[in-house]
């Protein structure tokens, strides 16, 4: 799936940013960030999602609520808007990298746009992974370190969340043979038995 390749590219870019930006980083922290961006964000998460897609015979989101071209155009406008806003207000953003801040905020908004306009559940998980990449870049733009215990915890939580959602997609496939958002409308405030 093209969206999974996009996640790989995002992961690789984050890895390169880590290498170039954090030159004064503690060695342990630098190694951890490289492990997080390269091993987890570039290799593990996309490989896992790819496996989920292949196993459940999921192909491209062929019938999104929004045509792909419009998605691309709107995402570009959001990115442009994010960069403009962060540059205009750069004097308020002390000790913050305005470039990364703008891209991070745009990525977070685009991920929400992605989640709300796509039909397949796997695309929602990809949107979630994209949101996490945006948040990673946002924390990077602040250039303040979390303690190692917190960073490890955050990484584990995010990875397990994606892993759990991937497993649930497999369960949806067993029940419905086509995991889409329309299968999330059965529970309403009506009568139902266990």
């Amino acid at each position: 799936m093209a969206q999974i390749n996009m996640l790989r590219v995002q992961g690789l870019l984050l890895c390169l940013i880590t290498l170039t930006y954090h030159q004064e980083q503690e060695l342990m922290m630098l190694l951890f960030l490289l492990l997080e961006t390269f091993m987890v964000k570039t290799l593990l998460v996309p490989a896992f999602l790819n496996k989920v897609a292949l196993k459940n015979n999921i192909k491209i989101d062929s019938d999104p609520r929004f045509p792909h071209f419009y998605t691309l155009a709107i995402s570009s406008f959001i990115l442009l808007g994010g960069l403009l806003v962060s540059n205009i207000h750069s004097e308020h953003l002390k000790n913050v990298s305005t470039l990364y801040f703008g891209i991070a905020i745009s990525t977070i908004i685009i991920s929400f746009f992605f989640i709300t306009t796509k039909k397949k559940l796997i695309t929602h998980v990809i949107g979630f992974a994209m949101l996490e990449n945006g948040i990673f870049l946002l924390s990077f733009s602040v250039a303040k370190e979390m303690p190692m215990i917190v960073s490890v915890g955050v990484l584990l939580d995010v990875f397990i969340a994606i892993f759990a959602l991937g497993l649930l997609i497999g369960q949806f496939e067993n029940h419905y043979h086509n995991p889409e958002v329309c299968h999330l409308c059965n529970l309403k405030d009506c009568d139902c038995d266990e």
Partner: peptide
């Protein structure tokens, strides 16, 4: 392990994870 519990679990994990991610933005 019913269709209903699957839907409930998906919504729980997905919505709470998104919500908690927003809380992390708040921390940053």
């Amino acid at each position: 392990k019913t269709e209903y519990s699957l839907e409930a679990t998906w919504k729980y994990v997905f919505l709470c994870s998104i919500g908690i991610s927003l809380a992390f933005v708040g921390i940053i």
